[in-house]
Design a protein around this nucleic acid. Structure first.
Length: 563
RNA sequence: GGCCCCAUGGUCAAGAGGUUAAGACAUCGCCCUUUCACGGCGGUAACCCGGGUUCAAUUCCCGGUGGGGUCACCA
């Protein structure tokens, strides 16, 4: 069997060899220790927290050592593609602080060239193209070489034939797949292949596996150390009918020619390591260092079991979900960092004011078991992040968020800048800022009583205070209220009303002798608090009134007195 | 089912052959206070099971069990 002839027959137009590409894509000139990483998504238009999680590892590992982080688009499956997915992907990642040095980018990026088929997208860098659909020639050169060496062959089996084989294997409790005797076309004669080709029969190219399942190989994983598994025996497809490679082959070729140092990908890829190890070996290339990140999990409501995040079942874990709720991107990042790296949280406590990029990220500190997504923890991290923000930063963020997601709120926020800066400044700054702001939607709900448009009574009036007393309290309060009073002078007056009306000035007195009083100062204050803010809980009332001003405060009191 | 990964409180997790087995979130209680989702103090709560190695194992080894992943011309 003349394999060279077969290769020529299959790829008459391919005149370049892998050696030629070796020269086109020489080793990168980077400082010692700098790593090349990559994010290689398929353009499905959907990104969830788990994807961001992986992207952060790529970004940090490359950039903390002066390396390169590039974006490669794995668009070898037309069925999954979504129009315009790449610019959206770039926007979302950039929003969360992930930016690339090379590869797919937005149209108009300096030094980039447009890609013909995706509006708004472009690419830059010396190791492209960065869309796999544009790299067909490179893959074919590599496949041709394998065919010429007898390491790959055309397989003409139909889908039905393969399905039948699988059914028979399943019935006989054998491992399913195309291997050994089931790889019926691995030793087709040249004449037979020629004949089928002449007939126009469709085919794929499979790798001819010489693997021995009793033999084990090892690869290094940055998180788990040495990984050991049996050699692959499957004759996997490397070139599909659409003339593009499968993931397995594209991964091997691209990460070789693009000089990726460390392949960061989800742990679901670990199972295909035998294929990748084999393919790297077949091409005579060095295998990269892998970093298989654990999946983000959630408890499935239906089964009560832990499971991997799924794009179909879990829209609430999509990145856009957090953007719409108005989480600060830093909050999401910091949360991901805390679950990604076991030493991050401690570092953050020790360095509350540093940029998270100053943290040194090391793969061996990364989690090696699936992590359950925890919204409580996210919220807690978010509170800490917002506590470090200035009032102006929070205002600006809120404004940007409302502009995109809630026009009504946008108008309110825009028209009340001065007031809101004061609102966001309540108990802010200093050693122990308030930690009650979580995300834009929650923040708005939290401060909505400052606007007449959104004010409403959310709490019940204190049960200790009768309706008549309530009106009397409010009447006296309105009479005595003077915005010029400082906090203690103001509260003295509240105490005065409290005592006059038969309530205990000290809550402890009331607790000791409940029969002697109608209630205590807390109940009286509660009436005023609800009148002004609509709720029983709020930050310091005096401060709130100072911000609202005399007119609005008295209007609220009057309104409540009528209620 | 085969192969692979994983296994410390409800959650995220540190940890070493001998420890009172950290810390964070959640939860509970108390305190502060006119209220609080703020703050302070404290509490409840964990090494999956069985063998082996060892003076000693939660830690190392083996085997179970449990959970997860994967077995496509999808990535």
């Amino acid at each position: 069997m003349d394999h060279r002839k077969l290769a020529e027959l299959l790829f008459p137009d391919v005149d370049r060899t892998p050696e030629d590409y070796e020269k086109i894509y020489p080793a990168r000139d980077l400082p010692e220790g700098a790593l090349v990483t990559r994010l290689a998504p398929s353009p499905t238009g959907y990104i969830h927290l788990g994807n961001l999680y992986g992207a952060m590892v790529d970004e940090r590992l490359a950039h903390q050592g002066g390396g390169v982080c590039y974006l490669r688009i794995e668009d070898t499956d037309e069925k999954r593609e979504v129009e315009g997915a790449v610019p959206v992907l770039l926007d979302v990642l950039s929003y969360f602080g992930i930016n690339f040095d090379e590869g797919a980018c937005k149209a108009g990026t300096p030094g980039s060239e447009p890609v013909p088929f995706e509006a708004g997208a472009a690419q830059r860098g010396a190791y492209g193209p960065y869309w796999q659909s544009m790299r067909s020639g490179i893959y074919k050169a590599c496949v041709k070489k394998l065919v010429a060496e007898g390491k790959a062959y055309p397989c003409f089996m139909t889908e039905e034939e393969i399905a039948d084989i699988r059914a028979a294997q399943t019935a006989a409790k054998l491992d399913p797949g195309i291997y050994g005797e089931y790889a019926r076309h691995r030793d087709l004669s040249l004449e037979e292949a020629e004949r089928r080709l002449a007939e126009g029969q469709e085919y794929v190219i499979r790798y001819r596996s010489e693997g021995d399942p009793s033999k084990y190989f090892t690869v290094r994983d940055a998180i788990r150390g040495e990984l050991s598994m049996p050699q692959n025996i499957q004759d996997v497809v490397i070139l599909k009918k659409n003339d593009l490679p499968t993931y397995h082959f594209a991964h091997v070729v691209d990460d070789h020619f693009m000089h990726t140092d460390i392949v960061i990908r989800g742990e679901e890829w670990m199972a295909s390591l035998p294929i990748h190890e084999q393919l790297f070996g077949a091409m005579g290339w060095e295998i990269p260092l892998y970093c298989h990140t654990t999946s983000l999990m959630k408890i499935d409501e239906a089964t009560g079991q832990k499971r991997k995040l799924s794009k179909r079942k879990d829209p609430e874990l999509g990145l856009s979900y957090y953007k719409e709720l108005g989480y600060f991107p830093e909050a999401v990042r910091e949360y991901l960092m805390t679950i990604l790296c076991s030493d991050f949280e401690e570092w953050r406590i020790a360095n509350p004011d540093k940029d998270y990029n100053e943290f040194t990220f090391s793969p061996d500190k990364m989690s090696d078991s699936g992590t359950l997504f925890d919204i409580n923890k996210l919220n807690d991290v978010s509170k800490d992040v917002l506590a470090r923000k200035s009032a102006a930063e929070i205002y600006d963020f809120m404004l940007g968020w409302a502009e995109e997601f809630d026009k009504d709120k946008y108008a309110l926020l825009k028209d009340n800048r001065d007031m809101l800066l004061k609102v966001f400044d309540i108990d802010r700054g200093g050693e122990k800022p308030r930690k009650d702001l979580v995300y834009a939607q929650q923040i708005f709900a939290f401060i909505k009583y400052f606007f007449d448009e959104t004010f409403e009574y959310e709490s019940e009036w204190p049960a200790e205070v009768s309706a008549e007393d309530r009106k009397e309290i409010l009447r006296r309060y309105a009479e005595s209220y003077d915005p010029a009073d400082d906090n203690s002078a103001w509260f003295e007056k509240v105490r005065g009303i409290t005592a006059d009306m038969g309530y205990a000035v000290k809550p402890k007195d009331y607790k000791k002798n409940p029969e002697m009083y109608k209630g205590h100062v807390g109940h009286v204050s509660g009436v005023i608090r609800i009148a002004v803010t609509g709720r029983a809980n709020s930050p310091d009332l005096w401060t709130i009134q100072q911000i609202m001003g005399r007119e609005k405060t008295l209007a609220r009191i009057a309104k409540a007195a009528e209620a």
